[in-house]
Amino acid sequence: MARTSALIEARGLHAHYGASHVLHGVDLVLGAGETIGLMGRNGMGKTTLLRSMLGLLTPSDGQVRIRGADMTGAAPHRVARAGIAFVPEGRGIFPNLSVRENLVMAARAGVRGQRDWTLARVLETFPRLAERLAHGGQQLSGGEQQMLTIGRALMTNPDVLILDEATEGLAPLVAQDIWRILRRVRDTGIGAIVVDKNFSAVSSVADRIVVMVKGRVEYDGAARSLHDDAALRHRLLAV
């Protein structure tokens, strides 16, 4: 019963890409409504960890559980229907669909039947999208595309948002906008795993920071302690 509070957890996860061993027994536990900042330099296994948890990659060993149920290697649509929404690196909008269609096609009630996020509420959160409803997905700026992917993820009424490099390549002002929105979303009780390289921005939304080095978790604790320990921060993140 001790684990019932964990919404999604990875236990002793190993993963391979061909011959290369990318994850070496990773543990990650996210409680309901909690936000984790997942950090680490390039090639440390962050994206592989997320993909293993999302069913996009079958781990070679270890377990993925959602609300205590074993979901290791489950199909991605089952993970999504368990309340886990993915905002991938590179945005992943559907360029052949309009903004409205991108949002509407994803609409679904959440795991508990909740319909908190409707088209109207998403458009209220992202006014820029409201002005561009009829535009094709490929006509949007980078920032707008990112807002669209986040809005689309919210349309599935998830319990957890998983964001991989959500502000990568965006202008600083636009990135600030995204962080402000993420804080608002967090305050509605949706949990998140946020991968990003910007330590101060990540610590502004995250309850906990997890740092990965070479396929292992090297730090899992409060953002504050990592912030205060400059030497540790430099060793783990080179910042």
């Binding site: 999302l54 996009l56 199909a75 991605p76 649509h77 993970v79 999504a80 229907r81 929404a85 993915f86 991938p88 992943g92 559907f94 360029p95 052949n96 669909l97 096609m105 994803a106 679904r108 689309r152 993820a153 599935t156």
Partner: peptide, 10 residues
């Protein structure tokens, strides 16, 4: 357009 992303939307 994107098979993997469509799956990840449930």
């Amino acid at each position: 357009a994107n098979r993997e992303m469509t799956q990840s939307l449930g």
